[in-house]
């Protein structure tokens, strides 16, 4: 299956795009997604370990399964306020 991952801030600049498509096996988890992003976009390699993944606008645990219709985003360390 193919999932779309939205990128923001530093991740968006490093990857030079605000969205990447990632090919995953059915039933893949958030941690598999994160590893796959790292292989597909080596420029995100350093940012990934400190980033979180949001699935359907909520921070996801690493063992959550993702689906192709999910709204997925890579959340670098936040700095609002």
């Amino acid at each position: 299956m193919k999932v779309k991952v939205q990128l923001f801030a530093a991740a968006k600049e490093l990857a030079r795009t605000d969205r990447i498509d990632v090919e995953l096996p059915e039933g893949a988890t958030v941690s598999v997604l994160s590893e796959t992003i790292g292989r597909q976009c080596p420029e995100l390699h350093e940012l990934l370990p400190v980033s979180r993944i949001a699935v359907n606008q909520e921070f996801a645990l690493s063992d959550l399964q993702v689906h192709d219709a999910d709204e997925i985003a890579l959340i670098p360390p936040v700095s609002g306020g």
């Binding site: 985003a73 670098p76 936040v78 700095s79 609002g80 306020g81």
Partner: peptide, 14 residues
């Protein structure tokens, strides 16, 4: 609230 905002809200400053 401000402590949680700084930790949790997906907002980034450049």
């Amino acid at each position: 609230a401000i402590d949680e905002i700084k930790r949790e809200v997906p907002i980034w400053k450049k």
